[in-house]
Simulated scan of single mutants.
Amino acid sequence: MASFKLLVGLGNPGTEYDNTRHNAGAQYIKALAQQSQCLLRYEKKFSGEFGKVSIGGKECFLLIPTTYMNLSGSAVQALCQFYKVLPQEILVIHDELDLPPGTAKLKVGGGHGGHNGLKDIISKLGNNRDFGRLRIGIGHPGHASKVAGYVLTKAPSTEFLKIEHAIDESLRYTDDIVAGNLNNVMNTLHSFKA
């Protein structure tokens, strides 16, 4: 398994979207940057907040696209072209409707499952789906018609705390994830439930 060079946290820009369910991926990157004492700065050429960090002795790029969710791919594409990052060296951290709050799962490849951020990244990478995904569970509102409003609102405090716990738990495995030791991580992270 290849190691990861670029960690992308998905979300929507603007204070009105802070701590909404759809911003779980961005929340992870902000927490990782803080933990690594890395200052994320807006980088125009990457259309996002960007930073460089050393994880397990390996230089990694952190990115939170500041485009809206459904245009996340253009930020990822720009950074990949500039730094010659391959799709299999990318880990995208995003909210996942199909997992309950308080859980997180790791996988490589697959479809977009209706997630507009993933859909745009797959498209901008030339339909390549070989990147890694860290999926932060946010739960499902119960009906497809309610999804848009659900992901763009803040979770009630009990749910929000569970999402935060799942992010914190995932952060504990960042060194192993970046190094490509995914099986070890999956064995423990996948059984975690806040």
Rank of each mutant, 00 (worst) to 15 (best):
P101A: 15
G114I: 05
R129S: 09
P100C: 13
G102T: 10
V92T: 05
L106Q: 09
L118E: 00
K119G: 05
L99Y: 10
Q88E: 15
S123D: 08
D130I: 08
P100S: 15
L134T: 06
K107N: 14
L99K: 13
E96W: 04
L79I: 15
L118V: 11
I90M: 03
L79D: 03
I90E: 01
L118P: 01
A78C: 11
L86N: 12
A104I: 08
G113I: 09
H115G: 10
Q88L: 11
G117K: 03
G142D: 05
H112M: 06
K107S: 14
K119I: 05
H140G: 06
K124N: 09
G149N: 15
L118R: 02
H112Y: 09
P101C: 14
P101G: 11
F82S: 13
V151G: 00
L91T: 08
E96I: 10
E89H: 05
F131Q: 01
G110V: 10
I138V: 14
Q81D: 13
K84D: 12
R135V: 05
G126Q: 11
H115D: 09
A104L: 04
I90C: 02
G109Y: 12
R129Y: 04
G114M: 04
V108Y: 04
V85Y: 00
L152C: 07
S145E: 14
L118K: 04
G117S: 11
V147C: 04
G114R: 05
G142S: 09
G117A: 11
I122Q: 01
P101N: 11
V92Y: 00
S145A: 13
Q81C: 13
A148K: 14
K107E: 11
T153M: 07
I122H: 02
L134Y: 04
N128V: 04
V108F: 07
G109W: 10
P87G: 09
A78V: 15
T153E: 11
G117V: 06
T153I: 05
G137E: 01
L91F: 06
I138Y: 00
L125Q: 07
A148V: 12
Y83F: 15
G114N: 10
N127E: 12
L91D: 00
K107M: 10
